[in-house]
């Protein structure tokens, strides 16, 4: 479904603070695969997501989605194939507009919008039913402003918006990182539900090793702009958080990480 070959991405090229975010990355994601991505800070996992979504351009390499070369296409042109959920719950919705109006935006994802009024009767009923599936009592608040919802509720609506028109690829960019634990759990549950119901090809970046292990059927691990590990379904099942930590330990050895850094990694990821 997604094929990435020889992708390079350098930020601030030629400047003293030059960063190679992605180095010669190759990745093929098959249809219906649910891939989780973990990695240290600055490992390039978010950049990987952004180059797939098109909000960051690549310096080199080719990206195809469903057989189409999208390397030179802008983010809004790729929206036909891709839907996204952002880390910041405020990014995925328009706070000054009602829930129904936000859903309508997603309803036409990738398609044309005409000067006709679609938001009425039947479509509203449809939205109401779908909101009910979130189990957050939002179905009666179709005409409330998005800005009046909590972060967790917003992220749930964003998730619903992402699957409203079944996407070819669903990109989740640390979408529970900014939420309280209870909401985060709820969103993860919803994510698994939507992905399995629609059998979606999914790429989920996360900072939680636990979530990364519990979700999906494939996991990649990134470090310094490279994919250093790629666990297929069988391998992934047998992995534990401790295994992952020891992987990071190996990196430490290789790169002479200080024990303090290891501690901070532990604090961050477990």
């Amino acid at each position: 479904m997604i094929s990435i070959s020889n992708i390079n991405k350098v930020f601030n090229a030629g400047e003293p603070d030059e960063v190679s975010a992605l180095k010669e990355v190759n990745l093929i994601i098959h249809e219906h695969e649910f891939v989780t991505v973990i990695g240290t800070n600055g490992s390039g996992k978010s950049t990987l997501l952004n180059v797939i979504a098109g909000s960051a351009a690549t310096d080199k390499g080719i990206i195809t989605i469903d057989g189409t070369d999208v390397t030179r296409k802008a983010d809004f042109q790729r929206a036909k194939y891709i839907s996204r959920v952002f880390q910041n719950p405020y990014s995925g919705t328009a706070p000054g507009m009602t829930i129904a109006e936000n859903l309508l935006m997603a309803f036409f994802r990738g398609g044309a919008r005409y000067p006709v009024i679609s938001l009425k009767g039947q479509l509203k009923d449809k939205f109401r039913t779908q909101l009910a599936s979130l189990d957050m009592q939002l179905e009666d608040r179709l005409d409330n402003l998005m800005g009046s919802l909590s972060g967790g509720q917003r992220q749930a609506v964003t998730l619903l918006m992402a699957v409203l028109q079944t996407p070819k690829v669903l990109l989740l960019d640390e979408h529970i990182a900014a939420l309280d634990p209870k909401s985060a759990a709820q969103i993860i549950r919803l994510t698994q539900k939507f992905v399995s119901e629609n059998n979606l090809t999914t790429l989920m970046v996360t900072h939680s090793m636990k979530n990364a292990l519990e979700s999906g059927n494939r996991m990649i691990m990134m470090h310094k702009g490279r994919i250093i590990e790629d666990f297929q379904e069988q391998d992934k099942k047998n992995l534990t958080v401790e295994d992952l930590l020891s992987k990071f330990e190996d990196i430490r050895k290789a790169e002479k990480l200080t024990p303090e850094l290891i501690d901070s990694l532990k604090n961050q990821y477990i």
Binding site: A74, F76, A79, S83, S91, G92, G96, M105, A106, R109
Partner: peptide, 12 residues
């Protein structure tokens, strides 16, 4: 209201 969101929905 939110250009990022609109772009993600395929709007130029």
């Amino acid at each position: 209201n939110n250009p990022v969101m609109v772009a993600a929905q395929g709007v130029s």
